[in-house]
């Protein structure tokens, strides 16, 4: 039981790292959204593994809510992408640097 938990968390941490790296390395807002998606999949795996050890139905309820949150966050991120594109003519986040100090 605990071995399967450790495996799940090991891969969850790996996914989390891959997503974080993608968000840090990329300048493209769309790719950063993909990184965010990978990160949240990592935390989803962590939650189901924890739930299997303690309270599975609570974990399922939590995951369902999390998926709803995730889709709204991604949709809102794409809206932001469209707005960025419309105003600046590109999706390069590094070109957005007028505010400094």
């Amino acid at each position: 039981m605990s071995a399967s938990f450790a495996t799940a968390w090991y891969f969850a941490a790996l996914l989390f790292f891959i997503g974080l790296y993608c968000m840090a390395a990329s300048r493209n807002l769309l790719r950063q959204l993909i990184g965010l998606e990978v990160m949240s999949k990592g935390s989803l795996l962590a939650i189901i593994a924890s739930g299997a050890m303690s309270n599975l139905s609570l974990a399922q309820a939590v995951i369902i809510t999390m998926i709803v949150i995730e889709v709204v966050v991604v949709a809102a991120g794409l809206v932001l992408l469209v707005k960025t594109y419309r105003v600046t003519g590109g999706v390069d986040v590094w070109k957005l640097s007028s505010l400094k100090g």
Partner: peptide
């Protein structure tokens, strides 16, 4: 939103160690 993902990991540990939120 990455910060939210970190909070979710925290929630996962809490679920494991407490079984409730």
């Amino acid at each position: 939103f990455p910060a939210s993902a970190v909070i979710m990991l925290g929630l996962a540990v809490m679920l494991l160690s407490a079984g409730t939120f």
